[in-house]
Nucleic acid binder design. Sequence first.
RNA 1: GGGGCCGUAGCUCAAUUGGUUAGAGUACCGGACUGUCGAUCCGGAUGUUGCGGGUUCGAAUCCCGUCGGCCUCGCCA
Length: 595
Amino acid sequence: MAVAYNKRTHSCGELRTSEIDKTVTLAGWVNTSRDHGGMTFVDLRDHEGLTQLRFNPQLGSAHGVARTLHNEDVIAVTGRVVSRGEFVNAKLATGEIEVEVNDIEVLSRCDALPFQVHDKIDTSEELLLRYRYLHLRRPEVQKVFRMRHTIARAIREYFHDNRFIEIETPFLTKSTPEGARDYLVPSRVQPGSFFALPQSPQLFKQLFMIAGFDRYAQIVRCFRDEDLRADRQPEFTQLDMEMAFVERDDVMTMVEGCVQRIFKDALNIDVPVPFARMTEQESMDRFGIDRPDTRYGMELQDVSALMKDVDFRVFRNALDGGGVVKCLVAPGGAALTRKVTDGLTEEIKGIGGTGLPIVKVIEGEKGIELSTGVAKFLQPIAVKLCEQVGASVGDAIFFMPGTFADVSKYLHYTRTRLATILDVIPKNRWDLLWVVDFPLVVWDEDAKRWCSTHHPFTAPIDEDVAMLDTDPGKVRDKAYDLVLNGTEMAGGSIRIHQREVQSKIFRLLGISDEEAKEKFEFLLDALRFGAPPHGGIAFGLDRWVMLLSGSQSLRDVIAFPKTQRAICPLTNAPGTVSDAQLDELFLTVKPLPKK
RNA sequence: GGGGCCGUAGCUCAAUUGGUUAGAGUACCGGACUGUCGAUCCGGAUGUUGCGGGUUCGAAUCCCGUCGGCCUCGCCA
């Protein structure tokens, strides 16, 4: 029996007792069905919800069809809304009513499923991705993408309301030095030449400012060919924005308003502004990382001075070598088992460290004593140590000797692991923090040259410019990173708008005048023709959706993501191409090296 | 490139820690049943234990390699 599925009267989530006795047409997927031989029930699902259908054997042929249904068959029905009487299902929004079906049309049958759509059970992620359209049918998965839309819409509306305009930038563009590895696209018309997919529209948006658009914002795809992580995909989406005639505070204030709007629309939460600010130096000192999670304590503490008098060679060597000894106090850490602390030590070794010295603070016969691990070396300064770092009986202290960079890395790792192990991260807390005053450049020991902390177009702080020639490592930049609960959510800066400064930075970074001309001539040219002071920021849209939706992985908020090996289990991309395609591009593929 | 966790029926998991015929739930197939809502009940079919090799009288279990998934360091201006 044909049913007018193109004339649905309601969605599957909206019928209530007020619609009783109305004749309705619904369409959707069979979520589950229950066949009693006589009376048969089907839960019909669409994007709005579930409605129970009742098939009465005394009401014509529909009942016979209903008995043949399987999960995920697609059907359309017409019937009368009736009260469930005493059989109300409180779990369903539509649970007070059901639809007594007169006519049913099976629009599409479903084969045996690789996994059940109505289950909440997660099978292997690879299978979920291979049949991603089935996974996406699940209401809780769809909810994430509806939130993604809400966030994207909030962003667009916010910037539109603030007189920004959205302009598209090219995907087929030019490979530039510095930064991540590029995804390349061969040119057929220019054999031997390659486009690069943009890592971000950075230079184009600067050109928009020079062009006089004043305020630009775009939600745009970016591409970086680097190894994947839970929070890194080769293609991802940014909110990219830029403003002319601004200083740092202007951009940061504009962003704070946007973040407020996102939280309001997505979670109905009011976040206070302005956000906290911290210099990069303070962040490194206190947390060992430039994107600190400030929801909990266990901050890093420098105990180098205290350790000068301690006869412990591991610490001594670090200090003599110009390094530091830092520690963090884990409240209640004395209760950690040997298995846990040894496990942490192994993890530290796994990321390149040599160990993780620990002591536990206990109540001894003469007061505070240290036990386990490196206690015997530190016992002479036990009282002084505990006093200085604020440790008391029942705590554990984890130490790390070495260079500032190594100590920061390993203690930051330790701190985040302990936060999970000791379960000290407050729920439902959103710590928004600006990190500012990064060093403009850092010395790359391997490459023997200066590298940009952010990118080569970041402006130095005015009073530090003089040090560009004398002490580049001391120059701070006009960048600002926005951190949420320890995750970098956005990064931006005031840009260089003076050609001489830009040239100077290129030279500092070891980019020759010839290379600068080849790669960036268009930018240097543009800077000659009246560039306004300008600055902006880019948000990782996927990360915002991930954090606000409580997702564990970026893959959960991207409709068709790649696996860790950067392949798509759904399409099997990337794949080989025909010789004819290669010939057109004048390309040959080298054989893989033998192992 | 390095470190770690995982891989048993379509799916989720078990298998007394090396012991003989690899089980259960669910999905699937057949049947019963007029108020269920994870329906229930009866019956049936379903395995290259990821793959390859090794140790052993005997391997899902131990070892080596390999493939795949995930976490992570490097990398990601």
